[in-house]
Amino acid sequence: MTEKKPKSSLRENIEAILIAIIIAMFIRTFIVQAFKIPSGSMLETLQIGDQILVNKFIYGVKIPFTGGKTLIRVKDPQKGDIIVFIYPVDPTKDFIKRVIATGGDTLEIINKKLYVNDKLIKNQPYAIYKSTELIPGNFGPRDNLRKIKVPDNKLFVMGDNRDNSLDSRFWGFVDLKAVRGKALIVYWSWNKDRLVPMWNSVRWNRIGHILR
């Protein structure tokens, strides 16, 4: 009977690294993923330089390379959810916006006032309007949008910075299959405009901030 040859330390280290990579890829693909906020379209909810964790499981486990086919669906995105999704205009980019209306809802904007299912939407403390200018509907959809109906399995999304957000008002609906997940928490925040001294560039008060 021959004795089993012990593994070399190099082989053990390589195996440990490979296992760690596989676990990390599994978590990133199916459970949680990190994203960085590059623009101010979600101010003041999200700051430029915020780094967030996104729950990829809550809206269903999507099978890679199947065009968004969902294996396990926990629930669909709800009004008010902050979601990360594949940008319909450029699939190589991810966008983050807030869900305003879901499939079957009607939506209309009149002089910056939002109506969903013919009801004026109030009590949205996250919605910020910084411009007093009103753009007529025939010049653009930012402040005035004719009544539309959201198709089934689609979402209408907007940024919280309502006067400065490229969203569904301009490029249309988000397909449920394009949704990557729901924004959960800010785990790190970096103000690139305050790099010296370095510790002043970290927004310590935002670390651990739960997103709503």
Rank of each mutant, 00 (worst) to 15 (best):
K112T: 03
D105N: 13
Y129V: 14
F95E: 09
T92P: 03
L114M: 04
T106V: 09
K130Q: 13
A101I: 04
T106I: 10
V116P: 09
Y115Q: 08
K122L: 11
R73F: 00
T70H: 01
L71R: 01
I109S: 10
T106Y: 06
Y126G: 02
N123M: 04
I83N: 04
E108Q: 09
A127H: 10
I72V: 09
Y87A: 14
K79V: 15
I121C: 05
S131L: 09
Y87D: 14
I128T: 15
K112E: 03
I86H: 11
R98M: 00
L107C: 09
G68C: 00
V89D: 10
L71N: 00
K130T: 14
L107P: 07
D90S: 10
V74K: 06
L71W: 01
P91C: 05
N111R: 12
I100D: 09
D81V: 10
E108P: 01
T92H: 07
N123P: 04
T92I: 06
I109N: 10
G68S: 01
A101L: 01
L114C: 01
K130M: 11
Y115T: 11
P91D: 11
K119Q: 07
K112I: 03
K79I: 15
Y129A: 07
D76C: 11
V116Y: 08
K119Y: 00
T102I: 15
R73T: 08
A101S: 02
I109K: 06
T92C: 05
F85A: 13
F85M: 12
K93T: 06
Y126V: 03
A127P: 05
N117F: 06
P91Q: 08
R73L: 02
K79Q: 15
K112Q: 07
K122M: 10
K122Q: 13
D94V: 13
V116Q: 13
I86K: 14
V74N: 10
K130R: 13
N117R: 08
Q78L: 13
I128N: 15
K119E: 08
I121D: 08
E108W: 00
P91E: 11
K113G: 07
Q124F: 08
V99K: 04
G104A: 00
N123D: 15
K112A: 02
V99N: 06
I86Y: 11
I100T: 12
K130W: 09
P88F: 01
T102Y: 04
L114Y: 03
T66F: 02
K122N: 11
I83A: 08
V116D: 13
A127Q: 12
T102D: 05
I72S: 00
A101P: 03
K122F: 08
I82Q: 05
I110D: 14
K79M: 15
I110E: 12
Q124D: 14
D81Q: 09
K75H: 08
